[in-house]
């Protein structure tokens, strides 16, 4: 259970959002500039809000009033970035292993094999990120975030940097992830078509405010865009 109630001023833009996310996929939906990425950066701890609180499973990650601000590396919140952000100097295997090494967990070959199978990346392990296609890179980024055993997974427009064919390639993996991984997810997208496939709960953001919360029926109120 994730409870977010934060305010943040960034120049002329003011973000003030309040929502809760239970299990499953919570989609942050809205046009560019609505503040979707700002919200996930705040949840991850990469950006500090001016006011408010963030709680995950009853633990305060941030609480301005109580002076709590857990640094990003202690939040155990996985983050899949729009551009992947793989480590260029490490192999795919080392990228996938990074979270486990940093948190000092013992090697878990079964979990590794399970995630590699889920994302179909077993044959890429010895390559360098440079040598991967955009779609492969994004699958590695998802695997890397999953293997740190996060309590919550943030996905910031994970398909936005991909062309239509690559989107169709990745989306089934994300659906599988939703159905099999049992990690609650916050999924950022501006594409209604994409969220119709993956979303469960929708939080619609507009100009830094929550405009509406509900099920995927919220997506119908906006104009339909084709997937890709």
């Amino acid at each position: 259970m994730l409870a977010v109630d934060v305010e943040k001023r960034l120049g002329a833009f003011t973000l003030a959002v309040r929502f809760q996310a239970a299990g499953g996929v919570t989609a942050l939906f809205g046009p560019s500039g609505a503040g979707k990425t700002t919200v996930v950066n705040i949840i991850a701890g990469l950006l500090t809000p001016d006011r408010g609180s963030i709680a995950l499973d009853g633990q305060a990650l941030f609480d301005a009033a109580a002076g709590v601000n857990v640094p990003p590396h202690r939040r155990r919140v996985g983050y899949v970035f729009q551009e992947g952000r793989l480590f260029p100097h490490l192999s795919v295997r080392q990228n996938l292993d990074y979270g486990r090494r940093m948190s000092g967990h013992p090697r878990d070959e079964r979990e590794f094999a399970r995630v590699a199978a889920l994302l179909d990346i077993g044959h890429l392990l010895n390559r360098r990120p440079r040598k991967l296609s955009a779609g492969e890179r994004q699958r590695i980024a998802i695997g890397r975030a999953l293997l740190m055993q996060p309590r919550l997974l943030l996905l910031d427009e994970p398909l936005a940097a991909l062309d239509a064919a690559r989107k169709r390639e990745i989306l089934p993996y994300l659906v599988r992830l939703r159905d099999e991984a049992r990690v609650p997810m916050v999924y950022v997208s501006h594409s209604a078509a994409e969220l119709r496939r993956i979303g469960e709960n929708i939080v619609r953001l507009e100009a830094g405010r929550v405009a509406a919360c509900g099920g995927i029926e919220l997506l119908d109120e906006t104009e339909t865009d084709a997937l890709g």
Partner: peptide, 11 residues
């Protein structure tokens, strides 16, 4: 941003 990614992974 790559350093940010490392931070979210527990470093």
């Amino acid at each position: 941003r790559i350093e940010d990614a490392a931070a979210t992974l527990g470093a």
